[in-house]
Design a protein around this nucleic acid. Structure first.
Length: 469
RNA sequence: CGGGGAGUAGCGCAGCCAGGUAGCGCACCUGCUUUGGGAGCAGGUGGUCGGGAGUUCGAAUCUCCCCUCCCCGACCA
C-alpha cells in the first residue's frame, strides 16, 4: 500500500512544502506574537554555523565586532530623510515604559545606521582613525505586514556591518570586498548556493544609500531571494551625524560610510535552494551534524561498534552524531534524518558487522554502499566532499536551465514566471521596470554580461529580472 | 487598510443546519510482539469547545457584542 508523502510535494505546492519542512525537520515554530518565530535547536545549530563562518570572513576583511543598544531615540531616525521615510512604516515604537509615558518615544532598531553614525562621529577625529570597520550580531525588528518564517519575520537575527572611510573610492571598494569575499564566498563555498552579484536599481536601493549591491539566489521554484546586501551610503549619514575628520592637510572632511547585512533569511534560502521532496539537504561545510551513525539494532556488540565509529569520526574532525534510539523503528529514524538533511548517514547493524562492514548513504544520491570498517573515515571524507560539490552543481544547473536571455519586456515577463530573465538595461529602463513591477516582477540586480559587478551603468549592463520572495 | 475564510486535545479535523453535557486521525504514556525504509495489537493520558452576555430545564450547537488568527492584494534583510 502506498504511503502518503511525508511532505507536500514541491511540485504540488511549494510554499506548503516549505512550511512542512520547517515543522517536520524541527527547525522553527511560529512565536506567540504575529510574525515572530521560535528557532528550535536544529535550526539554531545551522544559524550558529552560519554565524561562525560569516564572522571569520568578516574579521578577515578587517572588521571588529561591537554591540549597540536595542533602543534608539526616535529623533535619530529622523535625521536622515530617506532613511526615516523608508523605515517609519515598519517601526515598533515604545511610548510607555517604567509605568509612564516617555518624553521621547524610543524605537526598537530596524537597523542601526543611526546609532553607529552617532558613535562613529565621536570616535573619528583624524584621518588616522580611518577606515573604521565595525560589525555587530544582533536582532532587529521590522513590523512586516506579511511575515514568512525565516524569509520575512518581524524580529530577525543578523549581522550588520558599518564602516567609515576617508574617500568614496575606499568606501566603495570595501563594500564590494565584503560582498565578494565575505558574502559571495560564504554562500557559494559553504552554502553551495551559486548567487548572482550585482547592483540594485534606484527603485530597489536601500533607504539612504547611493548604491546598493546584493547577492541573489534562485530557489527551487525559480523565484529569487536576496541573500545579502552591501550599501555605499555616500556622505548621507556622515552629514546627518557629523561623521567628519581632519585630513593630512588639516582640512575638515566628511566621511564616506557603508553598511552591509546578512540575516536568518539565509536559512530560509538554504531550505528552498537545496530541499527536495524528502526534506532539507544541508551542505556538509555548513552542517552542524555532518554524519549520523544510525544504530540499526543493538545486538552482538553493534551498539559498542557504532559508538566507537562515532568517536573515530569525531577524532578525525567530523561533526558526527550517534542515533542509538533503537526503540524507534529503523525506517522512522532514517526518514527523520533525511528530513533534517544530514549529508551522510552510516547504518551500523549486526548483519553488516558480521562481515566487518557498515552501510553509507549520501543524502544527495539514491543508493547505498557497503564500506569496510577501516575504510569509513576516508569514505566519509570523500562523501562529504561529494555532497558539497553535488549540491552546488545541482543548484547551478537549475539556475542556468531556468535563466533565459530575452530581448523584449514581454518576453522578460513571460520568462520570469518560471525563473530568471536577462534583459539589457538599456532595453528595460526604469519605465520597463515599473511595467514589470505591476506584474510582481522586479529587477534583482544589474550585472556586466560576464556576471561581474558593473562599475558604471552603461549600455552593456544586463538586468536580471524575476519574481522574488 | 480593501476582499475571502476560520477559531473544538500538542497538530490536523468532524460534530453545529434539526440544543441533551464532546469525538476521529496523528502525536504522547504503558505492555507485549517488532526493528536493514514512515511498525502492529491492546490498554490509557489529555479539552472551562476563542471571550462575554442572552434565550432555554439544558448551549460546542440558537441570538447579540467583542477578540484573535489565516489566505489574497500595496512594502521588505
Amino acid at each position: 500500500m502506498a504511503k502518503a508523502p511525508i511532505l507536500t510535494p514541491q511540485a504540488e505546492d511549494f510554499p506548503r512544502w516549505y512550511q512542512d519542512v520547517l515543522a517536520k525537520a524541527e527547525l522553527a515554530d511560529n512565536g506567540p506574537v504575529r510574525g515572530t518565530m521560535v528557532i528550535r535547536p536544529y535550526g539554531y545549530g545551522l544559524w550558529e554555523r552560519m554565524q561562525s563562518e560569516m564572522d571569520a570572513r568578516i574579521k578577515a576583511c578587517g572588521a571588529e565586532n561591537v554591540y549597540m543598544p536595542l533602543f534608539i531615540p526616535e529623533s535619530y531616525l529622523r535625521r536622515e530623510a530617506e532613511h526615516v521615510e523608508g523605515f517609519s512604516p515598519e517601526l515598533a515604537v515604545v511610548t510607555h515604559a517604567g509605568g509612564k509615558k516617555l518624553d521621547e518615544p524610543v524605537v526598537v532598531r530596524p537597523t542601526s545606521e543611526t546609532v553607529f553614525g552617532e558613535f562613529m562621529a565621536k570616535w573619528i577625529q583624524s584621518y588616522r582613525d580611518l577606515p573604521l570597520l565595525l560589525n555587530q550580531w544582533a536582532n532587529v525588528v521590522r513590523w512586516e505586514l506579511r511575515p514568512r518564517m525565516f524569509l520575512r519575520t518581524t524580529e530577525f537575527l543578523w549581522q550588520e556591518g558599518h564602516t567609515a572611510h576617508a574617500t568614496r573610492d575606499d568606501g566603495a571598494a570595501y563594500a564590494t570586498r565584503i560582498l565578494l569575499e565575505a558574502y559571495q564566498d560564504f554562500m557559494v563555498n559553504v552554502l553551495a548556493m551559486p548567487v548572482l552579484v550585482g547592483v540594485k536599481t534606484r527603485r530597489e536601493r536601500f533607504a539612504g544609500a547611493i548604491n546598493t549591491m546584493a547577492c541573489e539566489a534562485m530557489m527551487g521554484d525559480g523565484k529569487a531571494l536576496q541573500m545579502g546586501t552591501s550599501h555605499e551610503l555616500g556622505q548621507n549619514f556622515a552629514k546627518a551625524f557629523d561623521i567628519d575628520f581632519l585630513d593630512a592637510g588639516g582640512q575638515r572632511q566628511l566621511c564616506w560610510t557603508t553598511s552591509w547585512g546578512t540575516s536568518t533569511r539565509m536559512l530560509g534560502g538554504l531550505i528552498m535552494c537545496h530541499g527536495d521532496d524528502a526534506g532539507m539537504r544541508v551542505p556538509p561545510r555548513l552542517a552542524h551534524v555532518q554524519v549520523v551513525v544510525l544504530l540499526v539494532r543493538d545486538e552482538d556488540g553493534s551498539g559498542e561498534a557504532a559508538q566507537a565509529l562515532v568517536d573515530r569520526l569525531v577524532a578525525a574532525g567530523v561533526r558526527a552524531r550517534l542515533d542509538a534510539h533503537t526503540s524507534a523503528s529503523f525506517g522512522r529514524r532514517a526518514t527523520d534524518w533525511e528530513l533534517k538533511g544530514v549529508p551522510v548517514r552510516i547504518e551500523v547493524g549486526p548483519r553488516d558487522l558480521k562481515e566487518g562492514k557498515v552501510t553509507l548513504v549520501r543524502r544527495d544520491e539514491d543508493g547505498k554502499v557497503a564500506v569496510g570498517l577501516d575504510a569509513v573515515p576516508a569514505a566519509v571524507a570523500a562523501a562529504l566532499l561529494g555532497v558539497q560539490d553535488g549540491l552546488l552543481a545541482a543548484a547551478t544547473a537549475r539556475r542556468d536551465n531556468r535563466t533565459v536571455s530575452v530581448g523584449t519586456i514581454d518576453e522578460a515577463a513571460e520568462a520570469a514566471q518560471s525563473g530568471f530573465a536577462r534583459i539589457r538595461w538599456s532595453v528595460l529602463g526604469e519605465q520597463g521596470e515599473e511595467v514589470l513591477a505591476a506584474k510582481a516582477i522586479t529587477v534583482r540586480c544589474l550585472q556586466n554580461p560576464d556576471g561581474t559587478i558593473p562599475a558604471e551603468i552603461d549600455d552593456e549592463v544586463v538586468a536580471v529580472v524575476a519574481r522574488a520572495y
